[in-house]
């Protein structure tokens, strides 16, 4: 690619990128404009929750288990070198609940759901199924986009809590095998410094990640033009763009959550 292609101008990479960003922003705006209006596709939303939740259950479980075991194994040696092996459960809980669990689970779901949503809606676009819904006054945006976004916003935190739980169980089994640690000691130590507010904020941020995955993938699928090749490209882009935006959103959410609260103006 020539450097000049990156510079502003019609057809340049920068101009195309800005155009896509503008279209995505418009798509997000359309979502919020239509979300409140009927028809409310409750049945389809529940089916999408089943698709997002139940069918991702095994993947998320295996991911959580692997994270817990590997983190415990990797950290044990380092902590032991400083005589701080007793802090392993607490370190695991903090790492998993505050960061690794939510981000890793969301990235794994972005891979599975981003590709699925992008390909499904994209193939419906190129085979004119979306047009068929439109001409039958069936509101395809509500039926296809709103339902998937709502499902992801609700199910991502649920799957994250499950992945966190499995990861902690994995960490406990590693500790049991490596040092014979009692489960009461492990879990009491693990959650000794975790506050409910931490758990709530760090888990609920995955609703934002779920929104990102669903809206980006739906946008890319909904706007496919062409044929099978373009559908494949949309599915691939859905995974890449969703993953990048999840990481970016995570930085922003963490930065905001670490800001000190505004000083109280009430005089006592």
């Amino acid at each position: 690619m020539r450097f000049t292609n990156l510079l502003p101008g019609r057809g340049s990479a920068l101009a195309n990128g800005l155009e896509r960003t503008g279209e995505l922003a418009s798509f997000v705006g359309e979502f919020f404009a239509r979300f409140w209006k009927p028809p409310y596709e409750w049945k389809e939303t529940l089916e999408q929750m089943d698709e997002v939740g139940a069918r991702s259950f095994l993947l998320v479980s295996v991911t959580g288990l692997a994270i817990g075991i590997v983190m415990a194994m990797q950290s044990r040696g380092t902590l032991a070198a400083y005589g701080a092996e007793y802090a392993l459960p607490n370190m695991l809980a903090l790492s998993i609940i505050k960061e690794i669990g939510p981000v890793f689970t969301s990235l794994v779901l972005a891979g599975r759901l981003g590709a699925g949503i992008g390909a499904e809606i994209g193939s419906m676009r190129v085979t004119e199924q979306i047009d068929a819904l439109e001409v039958a006054a069936l509101k395809p945006f509500h039926y296809l986009v709103v339902t998937r976004v709502v499902a992801c916003v609700f199910i991502f935190p649920v799957l994250t809590i499950w992945a966190d739980t499995i990861a902690m169980i994995g960490g406990y089994f590693e500790s049991l095998i490596a040092s014979g640690m009692d489960y009461r000691v492990f879990f009491t130590t693990a959650f000794s410094t975790i506050r409910f507010a931490d758990l709530f904020v760090d888990t609920m941020k995955t609703s934002i990640f779920g929104f990102i995955v669903a809206i980006v993938s739906s946008y890319l699928g909904y706007n496919v033009r062409g044929g099978t090749r373009e559908v494949g490209q949309a599915a691939m882009r859905a995974v890449v763009v969703s993953s990048l935006l999840i990481l970016l959103a995570d930085v922003i959410v963490v930065r905001i959550s670490l800001m000190p609260p505004p000083p109280s103006t009430t005089d006592h």
Binding site: T127, E128, Q129, D131, A132, E134, V135
Partner: peptide
Amino acid sequence: ELDDLRLSIGYLFQGGALFD
């Protein structure tokens, strides 16, 4: 108004556009 009009029109798409 648009929905009512569309409901009075049937559209056969080139590939059938059946929901697969």
